[in-house]
Every structure is written in C-alpha cells, then in structure tokens.
Simulated assay, not measured.
Amino acid sequence: MNNRAARVALALICGAVFGFGLSLSGMMNPIRVRGFLDIFGAWDPSLAFVMAGAVGVATVGVRIMRHLSRPVLDTEFHLPAARRIDGRLIGGTALFGIGWGMAGFCPGPALASLPLGLPAVAAFVVTMALGMTVHDRLVVRSK
C-alpha cells in the first residue's frame, strides 16, 4: 500500500472511530447537547464526562507527538502558527458557542448525523458550509 492509500485508509478509520464515539456519547443528539448547555435549567452534566475524556485522550496524544520527530504518514507536523488570543478568536469562539447552543450541533456531530436524513441536520450542514464559504471569500481573501 502506498503512502497516499495508507493516509486515506487511516483517515477513514479515524473518522469512523470518531463518528462512533460521537454517537455513543450522545453528542449527535441536539437535545442532550442543549441540556448540557442549559446550566440554569434542566442541566444534563453527562457531556462533561465526554469532554473530560476527550481532553484526556488529546493530552496523551500531544505528549506522544512531542516525542516524535515526524508523524507516521507525513514529513512534518502541521501545527498552527498563531498563538495570540485576539478579538477575532474571541468573536469566532462566541459565534461558535451561540450556534452550538441554538442548533445543538457543532460541525463534527452534524456531519456524522447526515446519514440519518433529518432535514434539520441537512439545513445545519448547508448553512454551515455557506458560512464557511462566505468567510473564506470575505475574510480570508481580504488579508
């Protein structure tokens, strides 16, 4: 198997494991997500455990990465260069959080939910893609 085929196969496996984890954890259920975000109402703390588990797994991954000279299927790590917390980052984070709270979806669970064929999921994914396209055309090109 060549390097490109190995990368595609690994990406498919990782995506399937990620989607299974989203489904198993309840992150694909907008009602459960909204319940987690409703801290002054009928709060559902179960997703806090999902997030804690994700942080734990990511911490182990970062520690392993720091001991590697390069990734297994690439020549170098592609890490973000920007480290500054600025207004754009805070605004984008707030916009993401508002959208997550209103829709009960963020991009990963929304894409994993597409095969369910629910109109609300399709509408979310279409508007998300439209928002990304508008951002790329207006913000990224203006730099």
Rank of each mutant, 00 (worst) to 15 (best):
V50P: 03
K143D: 10
L79Q: 11
L95Q: 03
F124L: 05
G131N: 08
H135C: 06
G26N: 10
F40V: 12
T93A: 14
C14A: 15
D38S: 08
A52N: 04
P71M: 05
P115K: 08
L111I: 12
F105H: 02
V50Y: 08
V72D: 09
L24Q: 12
M27A: 12
A110T: 02
P119Q: 07
G92V: 07
T133A: 14
M132Y: 13
L116W: 09
V60Q: 03
P80K: 04
A5V: 06
L130A: 15
G87E: 13
V62P: 03
R83I: 00
R70V: 05
H78A: 14
R141K: 12
D86T: 02
G92C: 04
F124E: 00
S23V: 02
V126K: 02
L73M: 11
V60L: 08
L89W: 12
F77Q: 06
H67S: 03
A48G: 13
R32V: 14
A16L: 14
V72G: 04
M102S: 07
G97W: 05
A54K: 08
S69G: 05
T133C: 14
I98F: 05
V72L: 14
R83H: 12
A11G: 08
M51S: 14
G101V: 11
P45D: 09
V134Q: 08
V139K: 04
A120V: 14
T75P: 01
M128L: 15
